[in-house]
């Protein structure tokens, strides 16, 4: 398969990345060579093979639901690019 520029632009939007027209061009070429490379996995017959999400045999890990200390607000806000005294500021979501 080959990805078109429009398809790559759609992926960029899904990934929330603004690409310049030049980047879009370069990435389309590079993604197509990588996709062609990873397509060799299709050669393998994986009928009846269970997917493996990670290598170690651990499953659901439960713990008691107990109240612990939380990050103080000031510490949580300290790295915010835009904030006021009690929250994170973002551009308006609704008009």
């Amino acid at each position: 398969m080959a990805l078109s520029i429009d398809e790559v632009a759609k992926v960029a939007l899904l990934a929330r990345l603004r690409l310049t027209p030049e980047e879009l061009q370069t990435f389309t070429g590079q993604l197509n060579s990588i996709v062609e490379f990873v397509e060799q996995l299709q050669q393998l017959d994986t009928t009846n093979v269970e997917p493996l999400a990670h290598g170690i045999d651990i499953h659901n890990v439960f713990r008691d639901d107990v109240l612990g200390p939380s990050l103080p607000r000031e510490k949580a806000l300290a790295n915010a690019p835009k904030r006021n005294s009690e929250g994170f500021l973002v551009p308006a979501v609704l008009d």
Partner: peptide, 19 residues
């Protein structure tokens, strides 16, 4: 913000994974 903050290899992998 993501366009300015990330370099090319990171963008490439994010795109590949999103795809």
């Amino acid at each position: 913000s993501r366009a300015e903050g990330f370099g090319a290899e990171v963008k490439r992998r994010i795109m590949l994974g999103t795809f």
